[in-house]
Structures are given as C-alpha cells and as structure tokens.
Design a protein around this nucleic acid. Structure first.
Lengths: 333, 333
DNA sequence: ACCGCGCGGTACAACGTTGTACCAAGAAAC
DNA sequence: GTTTCTTGGTACAACGTTGTACCGCGCGGT
C-alpha cells in the first residue's frame, strides 16, 4: 500500500501536520526536523493523495477537453497544443470523446465529470443553443467553436469569415462553378457558418448559387470527400472548384478527383479548412485556411485559468482567433 | 455551491446515508422515501463528488494514456480506440504527453499522477530497461510497444516482424537497393526492432546492407522524410525502394520524391508502418504495415482491468497483436 | 402476551489532507 | 523577574462519501 502522511509522521516521530508542512512548504519547521522528514519521505516513497487534496480544497488540477473525435488530426493537433498550454498552469488534460453525439455532448455539458475536473474546454458538435441554456452545471467552461449563445467564454476562428475567404480565393482564380462539400445551411453552427460564408461569397461576386453544387456530409472525413466527388462529377455540368469544409474532406476529394482523371487545379481547384499537417505534404498540396491553433489553445486555457482565479460571474468573453489562407498547389498549380 | 448529500438529506428529511443508498441502489429504502429523495436530487441538481468517492474507496475511474505526442495520427487513432475501450469499463482517459523526453517519461513512470489514476497505459519512447527496473510506483501499468524488460504487461505488434515483412515485400518486388528511413540500430527499442527487421530481411535475401542507405531520424514526421529523401537522392547510386519506419516519414518521402521528379513506384517503391488514415487516400496511396489497432487498444485496456480486479502480483503477460501488409499504389503501381 | 424477524432507516467512523487555533519553551525587553 | 514575542510544533475539525453496526417498529407465529 502507498504511504500516507501518517506513515511518514509515525516513522519520523512528528505529527502529521508537520509532515504536511514539509511537503507543502507551509507553516514553520526547523531545519533538522525538515531534513529528517524529507529522508523518511524519500525512504517510504511517499506521494500526496490527490483525491484527498482535491476533496480538501475542491480542486483537482485536471481539466477536460471534449472533442467529437480525437482521431481527427485537427482535434489531435489542437489537443497537443492544449496539453502544452495546460502544463504551464500545472494542469492535466483529460479527453472526452463525444462522437458528435448529442446525448453524449449533453452529458458532458451537464457535468458528467464535475468534481473530477476544474474546468472544461468544449468543442461542441451538434448541440443547440437550448441545450446550452439548460446547462445547470457550474464548472467553468470555455467553448471552442461557433457561438451558439452567449453562455460561456468562447475562442474560435470565425467560420463564416474563413469559409468566405476560401471561397473568394476560388472566385479570384476565375472559377465560376464552385461546389461546397460538407457544410449545409441546416446543420450545426459550424456547418451553417461555413455554408453561409461560401454562399455569401458567391452572391457578393455576382455568382448564382446552385443547390446542385452543395453536397452536405454528416461526417467530415476522407471517405465523405470521396463520395461527394462521385456525386459532383456525375452532374451534367460538373464544378470547376471545390470548397471543402475541412481538410479531411478535401484530401478525400483530391484522391477521388485523381481517380476520375480530373486534373487539380487545372480542371478543378480545391480548398479546405484546418491546415492539418497532411495538407502540407499531400500531392497536390492543399490550399487551406489555417487557423492559429496555438493561439486558440493558449487563449482557451488562459480564459479557463481566469475563471478559476475567481472571476466566475463576469460576463462571457469572446476571442476570435486569426486565420490566414495557405495557398498551395491545389489552387495555384 | 454544488449540492452535497447532506443538502439533499436535510431537504428530504432523511439521513445522509439514506440518500447515499438511493444514489447507489444500496441498502433498503422504501418506495415512497426513494421517490421523495429522487425528486430532491433532481431539484437540487445533486451530483456525487468524485473526489470524495475516490478517497473513500481508493479508485478514481481515471486511467492515463501516456504517448510521445498526441498530434501524431497513429497515437491519435490509438487514443480514440483506447477511449472507446475504456468507456466499456466506465473509465475516463487522461492524456499524458511525454514529447519522447526521457525526463518526462521517467516522471510518468514514477507515478507523477498516482492516486489520480487507477492505471497507466504507457507508450515509451526513449526509456531504457534500467529506468523500468527502477520504477517504484505501484500503479498498474500496461506497456504499449517494444519489450524493454519483463516488468509489466505489454501489448504490441512485433516491430521486428513488421519491419521485416515490409522489407520482404520490397525484395519480392525485385528491388535491390532498399533504403531505410527513421530506424537505427542505436536508437530506442522500437527503432532498433525496425532496423533489425529491415537488416535481417536484406541479409536473408542475400542482399548486402549498405550503411549509406540508412538514414536515421530522431523525429518520425513528414519533415524528416523529406529531408531523408534529399540525402538519399544525392547518393551516386540512389535507392530503388524506401522502407520508412512510420507512415508520416513515408508521406514526407513521397512528397519529396515527387518534387525531385522521381516516379513512385516505378523508380522507387515506398512502404511505411502504422497504416494511418492518410495512407489510404494519399497520392499515391501508401503501402503500409497495418497493426490491428483496435485489438491493441482493447487488449491493453482489458489487461489493465484484470490488474485492477486483483491480480496485482501475477507475472507480466505479453500480447503480440497481429498486423498485415496493406499493399497500395506506392509499391504496386 | 411474548418472541423472532424482516423492513426501513440511522449513527458513526474512516478514507488522507490541510486550515485554524492553540501551546510550550526559550529569547528578548523592561 | 515578570511580560511579551518568536519559533517550532501539535490537536482538531472538516472536505463528501460509504461500509459496518445497530435500532425501532409492526407483523406473524406460538
């Protein structure tokens, strides 16, 4: 069994509290006593019991990062940065995987892990504003993603602006039949934002949006991109550009385009969003909207830290992280 | 403040223990009382304090997964499966990122999180057998990766066999100048295993291994693959095949080969290990050794469960997960 | 009328830690 | 030589939960 304070105390011939003081550097302890206690601690391999500590002062040193799927490189890359940022505050990060399942997301929101975690970084998938309004759990939370309602601190890129920038890039290339893969007007907030950015960019440029060129996909992964391209190429008048809601869709699309003998970017140009590592090395490399992931991670963790430092009740704050367009072979040849 | 058992008890006019019984379904509680208590629980939004529970019976319901970097798709995909498998046991997974830094790995090994976690799944990077021998922490641990010493349960594919299979595939294609990127005889256990598998396959086929064709890389990521190819193509007699120690290296290599105008697989064939999602959709798609990740994740979590169920002292067990070669365009053109 | 028993429930201690309050002994101040 | 202060340390309670032991009540059997 693991040694406890009282084991150490007994062996060192002092009170429990004195050992506690040595461990925490609190109170006053004589040099001689301190040495003795420290030796015994070493000897017994004593480690403080985090649960007891946590119980005592209501903090666990753990924050949760809830994402739809950690296997998605965007979330994985983000998680890596979140873990690094959290380290700076002495926090450990726990991963909650929601599978973008509303029920699971609701559980996370309602504090399934409360008491275990000090704070929550939440990347919502399919939850509605109502779900957030109904939240009763009081664990500090920072949202990563679209605004649903002003319920919590939020950090994100502006999906609308990102989608619009990507689409405008395609328009600037002179493309006229620009398809959209993934996003849909009737989807969740992210999906809607990306759809509207795409749509408005077309309208602003005097293009006439066509419903036939919009292929919504529930899961934004390689396979869905492949499938969407199959449908788009079957059209009597196929597109000359693809705006993909994320990079995975885009890579699936690139693959499918090649398999159909379509040249990229000559025949069809492709852009994505997320700028995952794969996009820098694929062939062709993928033009993508690159969010400042580091900034997002650090800001989010920082906001959580603020909340934990006492400003529990202040109004929700929003931070819109920057992004830029990484132009690569899939659009510039 | 969050409601506690005693808040609920006071409001329902019963004892704390009765509420506890209702929550846990223990003891005997009358139907009427149960209803009343449940209503109050709902009303107050009571949630059990995990820390207190944990303190009480010494379990936290949290296991840690320590990986070099969660941003690496192989580890991310594995993490996804581990999280899913852990769910079946009611466990939450906490991510520890070691950056393959020996000091950080040693901390994990020594139980930096002990008391917070019930068990540890550890993917070691650079630790030596001595480090494992020196472990004093008693948290149940399952190693994912190469055998260092028989100190703990272990689940992994056989790196040696995997590397050998990959290399033999290249030999079967008639390639004679097969280079290796990543692995080295002087690296950590995984690196060594992969190097030896490569080396022995060559020797067994009557090839003469050449040190010039071996390009060790510390970090197995896209960039390193690019760099390695640059060096290999500068040789007076460049290779006609590449065995890459993981898929990321391979994808970097594919990209660099294309940039140098080398045709794959005609001029140079390429294989990797890990079979990440990217490999199925890249152009060319990548031939890769595919470990059974689901099996690895489920077995590892299962072993941990066993240990927690009492068999603390039984001898370390080993499970070698299967793998198969996914032959794709990068070798079969 | 008494015993035994199942039912519904309570009281208490303990998990390991730390904050608060206190205390003994020696030193410094008058 | 009493008072006051500092130093080094202790005792106790409390955080929220749950396992163990116990208790009172009504009911059926003798």
């Amino acid at each position: 069994m693991a040694a406890t304070l009282s084991d150490v105390a007994a062996r060192a011939g002092v009170s429990i509290k004195t050992v506690s003081n040595v461990v925490n550097g609190t109170g006053r302890v004589g040099a001689e006593t301190r040495d003795r206690v420290e030796r015994v601690i070493e000897e017994l391999g004593y480690r403080p019991n985090v649960s007891a500590r946590n119980l005592r002062h209501g903090r666990s040193g753990v924050i949760a990062l809830a994402v739809p799927e950690i296997g998605n490189p965007y979330f994985a890359e983000l998680a890596e940065l979140v873990v690094k940022a959290a380290e700076g505050y002495g926090w450990t990060v726990l991963i909650d995987q929601t599978d973008a399942d509303p029920d699971r997301e609701r559980l996370v929101l309602q504090g399934i892990r409360s008491h275990l975690i000090d704070g929550l970084l939440f990347v919502p998938g399919r939850l509605s504003a109502d779900d957030f309004a109904a939240r009763t759990d009081t664990t500090p939370m920072v949202l990563l993603g679209e605004r649903l309602t002003r319920v919590a601190d939020r950090v994100a890129i502006d999906s609308y602006a990102a989608a619009r920038a990507a689409t405008e890039h395609l328009i600037d290339l002179g493309r006229t039949r620009i398809a959209a893969i993934g996003a849909t007007a009737s989807g969740d907030a992210v999906s809607r934002g990306r759809y509207e950015g795409y749509h408005d960019a077309l309208v602003a440029a005097g293009h006439r949006p066509s419903a036939r060129l919009v292929v919504p996909q529930r899961r934004w992964r390689h396979e869905s991109g492949v499938e969407a391209v199959g449908r788009l190429l079957a059209l009597s008048r196929p597109p000359d550009a693809l705006f993909c809601s994320n990079d995975l869709l885009a890579h699936g699309a690139l693959r499918a385009l090649h398999d159909h003998g379509v040249r990229v970017p000559d025949d069809i140009a492709v852009v994505g969003i997320d700028d995952i590592a794969e996009s820098r090395f694929s062939r062709p490399s993928l033009t993508s909207v690159a969010p400042d992931k580091r900034h997002i991670a650090e800001t989010a963790v920082g906001l959580l830290a603020d909340r934990l430092k006492g400003s529990f009740s202040s109004a929700p704050r929003e931070f819109i992280a920057g992004f830029h367009l990484e132009v690569r072979e899939s659009t510039e040849g």
